[in-house]
């Protein structure tokens, strides 16, 4: 065998031994601070209560409502079809298949937006996408659909359309004008999500 091949082989094996000895590098999965800042400046993480109501009324199966309040609060009252993933369990591996996927749109909510925003930030730092916050939380949801006032005659058509929609949502929920006292729709506990951590790239061969 030629000398040069022996030298190359020795170098290659030496590099291989170094790689085998080197400690496993900690894999960075969290979003970098500068990217996090950009995300926080972007208001698109919020979803309006009207949009959320649209998901509920249309029974859009691609929208998953996630209540991050405590199980006690959830048992007391929540939005129809909502899951309960308490804030202190948001990073539990049991819920990763729901929170880390790109098929369903996850809508996080709490009474206000404090807990849902904190949950969203934790998920964002983990690099999970497809999670949104219901703007204003349940308080805003109830206020919006219970206290909708009939618009003035001088208001625009869009305002009247919005009133009609909100009134329709109120009718959908109550038939009278009050938000129901408990979950009328069973949570979608049996959803099957194919885990898809990374986006599909073009793949090639030789």
């Amino acid at each position: 065998m030629r000398k040069k091949y022996i030298i190359v082989s020795v170098i290659a094996i030496s590099l291989g031994i170094i790689l085998a000895i080197l400690p496993a590098k900690k894999i960075r999965t969290e979003v970098r601070p500068n990217q996090m800042l950009m995300e926080l400046l972007d208001e698109t993480r919020y979803m309006s209560v009207d949009k959320v109501a649209e998901y509920i009324v249309e029974q859009n199966r691609f929208g998953l409502l996630i209540d991050v309040r405590t199980p006690e609060e959830y048992a007391e009252w929540s939005l129809p079809g909502a899951f309960n993933i308490p804030f202190d369990s948001i990073l539990s591996p049991n819920y990763e298949y729901i929170l880390n996927q790109d098929i369903y749109t996850n809508i996080l909510f709490s009474n206000g937006t404090t807990y849902s925003s904190q949950a969203w930030m934790l998920l964002k730092r983990k690099g999970y996408t497809n999670n949104y916050i219901m703007k204003g939380g349940l308080n805003n949801f109830i206020t919006t659909f219970l206290t909708t006032q009939y618009p003035l005659e001088s208001e625009s058509n869009e305002t009247f359309d919005l009133y009609q929609f909100r009134n329709g949502v109120r009718q959908y929920f109550t038939g009278s004008g009050e938000i129901p006292a408990s979950n009328e729709q069973e949570p979608k506990n049996e959803i099957i999500i194919k885990k898809n951590k990374k986006k599909e790239d073009d793949v090639g061969g030789c």
Partner: peptide, 17 residues
């Protein structure tokens, strides 16, 4: 471990060559 696999792979490559 990835590094151990690569070491084996290098050895296999040299034998194959």
């Amino acid at each position: 471990k990835d590094g151990i696999f690569v070491l084996f792979f290098i050895i296999i490559a040299i034998v194959v060559f």
